[in-house]
Simulated scan of single mutants.
Amino acid sequence: MHKLLVLYPEPVDRAAFERHYRDVHLPLCARLPGLVDMAFALGVDEPDGGPYFAVFEATFASAEALGAALASPEGQAVQADVPNYATGGAVVVPFAAERPVTV
């Protein structure tokens, strides 16, 4: 399993970020080919209380599936949309996820 983690620093306007993120960006993400699951959180920390306002996680079957999704027209649309709402930028972290033997 391979994951894509996106961390969003504090935006200039939280309400504008949330509107665009929910109404435009998440629907674009949902169209990524090979997407197994996705989850997000907004308002992770209070203003000026931490380094990140929001977090997004997408799950793919493999690194190859993630790479293909990002290279696809849908992936290009997702990446092109980020500057439209993420005024604080975005930190993107792809990683191979492991599950522990016991939980």
Rank of each mutant, 00 (worst) to 15 (best):
residue 35 L to K: 03
residue 35 L to W: 08
residue 35 L to F: 12
residue 36 V to P: 07
residue 36 V to T: 11
residue 38 M to V: 10
residue 39 A to V: 15
residue 39 A to W: 12
residue 39 A to F: 10
residue 40 F to M: 10
residue 40 F to W: 15
residue 40 F to S: 11
residue 40 F to K: 06
residue 42 L to H: 00
residue 42 L to K: 00
residue 43 G to M: 03
residue 43 G to S: 02
residue 45 D to K: 14
residue 46 E to W: 13
residue 47 P to E: 07
residue 47 P to N: 07
residue 48 D to F: 15
residue 48 D to S: 15
residue 51 P to G: 14
residue 51 P to Y: 00
residue 52 Y to M: 12
residue 52 Y to R: 04
residue 53 F to Q: 06
residue 53 F to L: 02
residue 55 V to W: 00
residue 55 V to H: 01
residue 55 V to L: 10
residue 56 F to S: 08
residue 56 F to C: 02
residue 57 E to L: 12
residue 57 E to S: 05
residue 59 T to S: 12
residue 59 T to Y: 08
residue 61 A to E: 14
residue 62 S to V: 00
residue 62 S to E: 04
residue 63 A to Q: 13
residue 63 A to S: 11
residue 64 E to P: 09
residue 65 A to Q: 06
residue 66 L to T: 08
residue 68 A to H: 06
residue 68 A to N: 07
residue 68 A to E: 13
residue 68 A to C: 05
residue 68 A to Q: 12
residue 69 A to T: 05
residue 69 A to C: 09
residue 69 A to N: 02
residue 71 A to W: 01
residue 71 A to F: 03
residue 73 P to Y: 11
residue 73 P to H: 08
residue 74 E to C: 03
residue 74 E to A: 12
residue 75 G to D: 03
residue 75 G to F: 02
residue 76 Q to S: 10
residue 77 A to D: 09
residue 77 A to W: 05
residue 78 V to G: 01
residue 79 Q to N: 14
residue 79 Q to F: 11
residue 79 Q to V: 13
